[in-house]
Amino acid sequence: MLVNLSLQVIPTVKEEDIYYVVDRVIDRIAESGLKYEVGPMETTIEGELADLLEIVKDAQEICVKYGASRVCSVVKIDYKPEGVTIDEKIGKYRK
């Protein structure tokens, strides 16, 4: 069943390094092969819950690997028994 998970990572690094570290997390998401959309404050991913939670775990480790002394993350999950997709929620807003 597909669920949506939005992930915002806020690594404690020098300001000039923030985008570089966040981009490494987005690289991990892209490599997963799952559908995702990058937004200005968070990235939303569509997939099986177990796979998405593994990405959340990896995101913390990636931030530390690239210099973060601490990582604050915000995770939102949209789950319903029949599944939920990104398209059903925002498809009507796309041009």
Rank of each mutant, 00 (worst) to 15 (best):
M1D: 00
M1W: 01
L2P: 05
L2F: 04
V3Y: 02
V3C: 11
N4I: 13
N4F: 01
L5R: 02
L7M: 12
Q8T: 10
Q8R: 14
I10A: 15
I10D: 06
P11C: 04
T12N: 12
T12S: 12
V13Q: 08
V13Y: 00
K14E: 13
K14F: 05
E15T: 12
E16G: 01
E16S: 10
I18M: 04
Y19C: 10
V21S: 09
V22L: 02
V22S: 01
V22C: 06
I26G: 08
I26L: 12
D27F: 07
R28C: 11
R28A: 14
E31F: 02
S32R: 07
S32D: 01
G33R: 03
K35D: 00
E37I: 02
E37D: 00
E37R: 02
V38H: 01
G39I: 02
P40S: 11
M41E: 09
M41H: 10
E42Y: 06
T43R: 01
T44M: 03
T44I: 12
L49H: 01
A50V: 08
D51H: 04
L52A: 05
L52Q: 00
L53Y: 04
L53H: 05
L53D: 00
E54C: 02
I55P: 08
I55E: 07
I55D: 05
K57V: 11
D58K: 15
D58G: 12
Q60W: 08
Q60T: 05
Q60H: 15
Q60K: 13
E61Q: 10
I62L: 08
I62N: 03
C63N: 10
V64D: 02
K65A: 02
Y66G: 05
G67Y: 05
A68E: 00
A68F: 05
S69I: 15
V71L: 10
C72G: 12
S73W: 02
S73L: 07
V74Q: 10
V74L: 14
V74R: 15
V74C: 10
V75P: 03
V75S: 08
K76Q: 07
K76V: 08
I77H: 02
Y79F: 13
E82N: 14
E82Q: 15
G83C: 01
V84Y: 03
V84Q: 09
T85C: 08
T85M: 03
I86L: 13
D87C: 00
K89S: 11
K89H: 09
Y93I: 11
K95E: 11
K95N: 12
